[in-house]
C-alpha cells in the first residue's frame, strides 16, 4: 500500500509558531502530559510517548497530517455529545463530574476472549501513539486533532474475533444519572440510548482506525469521549463513538444510533464524500474551525490512499 502524506502546508509552518507564541500553554501541556503518564503508567510504552512532549514536537508518523492543529480550547469546548446536551457548548459544562474511573469494557459476541475487562487490562502493553488526524463533522465543519492512543487493529487482534465475525459494534455507556441527555423526555427528540456505532471488521483492521485516550498529549477530556473513544478519520465524526463500554463482534451489520433515528439521512458507512450530499445540505465543502473561508471537502476526508480499497465495487451513493 502506498502511503502518502498531505503536503499542502509546508512543514515549517507547523510546530514553532504555536510553541513560541504560546510558551506558557506548551509548558502547561507538557507538564500535564507528564501527569497523564503518571496516571496511566500501568501502560508500558506510554511513558516514553508522553514524556517526549506533545504531538506538536514529535516526529511525524506516516498517517499524521501537517495541517495546522485546532487549538486545544476549541477541541474541548465545541463538541457534539448529545448525552450531555444538544448544544455544542453543553458537553464541557455537563461532563465535568463524569466518572471515568474505574472503567470496564465488556467484550461480547463472536470472539475468543469474551469478558468484562478493566480498562487497564484491556489496553495493557499497548504503546501510546500520537496521531494528527483531520476530523470532518457531518455538519460540514472540521478540525485537526492530535490524538493519543493506539490502533484499533491491535485491540481487535488481542480479543481474537472468530472467523464468522464480520462486524464490530461499539456502545457508549448508558447512565442517565451522569448524562442528562439520556434522561427520558416527554416529547422525545433524542437518539435511542446507548449510542451505538459499528465498523466492518476490515475497516476496524485498517491502520487508520484508532482508539483515542488523549489529545494534545493529555488524557482525553470527558467532553471528548473519555476514557476511550473511536476515531475513524475518513468517516464523519459521528462514527467516533465515545466513552465505550461495550465491544461486540457479530456477523450482522450493527444498527447504529443515527441510522435508527434517521435512516434516509445517515448510513452505516458514513464515509466523508463531497459528492454525496446529506439530503438536506451540501457536503462539498466545510469550514475548518478557526478559518474564515470554507475549504473543499476531500474524498474520504483526504485518506483515500489508505482506505479507498476497502470500498472498491461498492456503490457509495447507495452505501452512504
Amino acid at each position: 500500500m502506498l502511503i502518502q502524506r498531505a503536503s499542502d502546508i509546508p512543514s515549517s509552518e507547523i510546530t514553532p509558531e504555536r510553541l513560541y507564541s504560546n510558551r506558557r500553554e506548551f509548558i502547561k501541556t507538557a507538564s500535564s502530559a507528564l501527569g497523564t503518564a503518571a496516571v496511566i503508567s500501568i501502560l508500558p510504552g506510554c511513558m516514553n510517548s508522553s514524556a517526549s512532549g506533545t504531538a506538536q514536537n514529535k516526529a511525524r508518523g506516516p498517517y499524521d497530517t501537517d495541517e495546522k492543529q485546532t487549538p486545544y480550547e476549541d477541541i474541548i469546548s465545541y463538541n457534539n455529545y448529545y448525552e450531555f446536551g444538544i448544544d455544542k457548548s453543553d458537553p464541557i459544562k455537563y461532563s465535568k463530574n463524569f466518572k471515568t474511573k474505574p472503567w470496564t469494557v465488556s467484550v461480547e459476541g463472536m470472539v475468543k476472549k469474551p469478558a468484562t475487562y478493566a480498562l487497564e487490562d484491556l489496553t495493557k502493553g499497548f504503546a501510546m501513539e500520537d496521531r494528527v488526524y483531520r476530523m470532518r463533522c457531518v455538519e460540514a465543519w472540521s478540525m485537526v486533532i492530535p490524538w493519543m492512543g493506539f490502533p484499533l487493529a491491535e485491540l481487535v487482534k488481542r480479543l481474537e474475533p472468530t472467523p464468522s465475525a464480520k462486524y464490530v459494534e461499539f456502545k457508549t455507556i448508558l447512565d442517565p444519572s451522569q448524562m442528562p441527555g439520556q434522561k427520558p423526555s416527554i416529547f422525545g427528540g433524542g437518539l435511542h440510548w446507548p449510542y451505538t456505532e459499528g465498523l466492518r471488521l476490515d475497516e476496524a483492521m485498517n491502520p487508520l482506525a484508532f482508539i483515542a485516550m488523549g489529545i494534545y498529549g493529555k488524557s482525553l477530556p470527558n467532553q471528548d469521549g473519555a476514557p476511550l473513544r473511536l476515531v475513524t478519520p475518513w468517516k464523519y465524526g459521528f462514527k467516533g463513538v465515545k466513552a465505550i463500554v461495550k465491544i461486540r463482534f457479530t456477523d450482522k451489520q450493527p444498527l447504529t444510533a443515527w441510522m435508527e433515528a434517521s435512516p434516509q439521512e445517515y448510513g452505516f458507512y458514513a464515509n466523508v464524500n463531497p459528492q454525496v450530499d446529506h439530503p438536506r445540505w451540501s457536503q462539498a465543502s466545510e469550514r475548518r474551525i478557526g478559518e474564515f473561508y470554507k475549504r473543499r471537502t476531500l474524498m474520504f476526508n483526504g485518506y483515500a490512499e489508505q482506505v479507498a480499497q476497502l470500498y472498491s465495487g461498492l456503490d457509495l451513493r447507495k452505501n452512504f
Binding site: 465543519w141 469550514r287 474551525i289
Partner: peptide, 12 residues
Amino acid sequence: TVSGNLTANWLE
C-alpha cells in the same frame, strides 16, 4: 463576539 463568548464556530 467582542468578549469571546461565542463558540469556536462563531459563524454558526
